[in-house]
């Protein structure tokens, strides 16, 4: 009960504070739209919010799934082989250091017109790094005794990975996935905003900007926040199911 009501209560307080702030300062809505301006904006574009929201969501999820596959693969390679780690790590760090906003126009030119592909690609590129790092660290910090216990019984590398390394890395993996979820949304939106004739919530945001429809821009932000929260909690539920053992009981 408390777990449901406390967050809702906090959200109501936040909205009231926001509304009050705009009202007290008498800000025009191009400075800051108030929550009461948002509902009409949502209502006016409800069809677009649904279709574009769905586009943003599925692109983010697909980008994230690719990030998981590639990130886990890189993480495994770097976690098991010291040589590969020494070789790949600087490359990955450098790649990650490049602000993805600069990569967006390059990718948009590279696959011109392929909006879905571009968007998924950026979502993937921005979010796979934390996954690769966490998996590699999880695997390389596996205490040697775990390996010795299984190896002394004649277990293969694959068995060791499956029985010990993989489950032991899951808490780190889910920690990274939570970060990756928000990053993937950033990636999706970067491409949607920048692409001409783009679709998705990012494009809706951009059209709000061109049409000076400021409440619409704020409404998109809220819609993105809602999607972000939803996807984040999906990861939390998955974490509870697959890595719930790592949670210490607090009592």
């Amino acid at each position: 009960m408390r777990q449901v009501f406390v967050p809702i209560f906090a959200m109501i307080i936040f909205l009231l504070f926001w509304e009050g702030l705009v009202w007290v300062n008498d800000w025009p809505n191009y400075k800051m739209a108030s929550p009461s301006d948002l509902w009409p904006a949502f209502w006016r574009f409800k069809g677009l919010f649904l279709t574009f929201g769905w586009e943003t969501l599925w692109r983010t999820i697909v980008g994230l799934l690719i990030a998981i596959a590639v990130g886990v693969l890189f993480g495994m390679v770097m976690g098991f082989s010291k040589v590969m780690r020494e070789g790949l790590y600087p490359l990955l760090v450098g790649f990650n250091a490049i602000p993805k906003a600069t990569v967006v126009p390059i990718v948009a030119l590279m696959f011109v017109g392929q909006h879905d592909l571009n968007t998924v690609l950026i979502a993937f590129m921005i979010s796979f790094f934390p996954i690769a790092v966490s998996v590699s660290i999880g695997l390389s910090t596996l205490e040697p005794e775990y390996r010795d216990i299984l190896r002394s019984l004649g277990a293969s590398q694959l068995t060791i990975f499956w029985k010990i390394a993989l489950p032991k890395t899951l808490p780190e993996f889910f920690g990274a996935l939570k970060v990756a979820v928000t990053l993937a949304f950033i990636g999706t939106n970067l491409m949607e905003i920048v692409s001409p004739h783009g679709r998705g919530l990012g494009a809706l945001f951009d059209s709000g900007k061109t049409n000076a429809d400021y409440p619409l821009m704020f409404a998109v932000l809220i819609a993105l926040a809602v999607l972000g929260i939803a996807l984040y909690y999906v990861v939390v539920v998955l974490e509870k199911i697959f890595a719930g053992w790592a949670e210490r009981s607090t009592d």
């Binding site: 205490e143 005794e145 775990y146 216990i149 029985k163 010990i164 489950p167 032991k168 899951l170 890595a243 053992w245 790592a246």
Partner: peptide, 8 residues
């Protein structure tokens, strides 16, 4: 010395 039990 480290019992290395599988926590899960």
């Amino acid at each position: 010395q480290n019992p290395v039990l599988l926590e899960w």
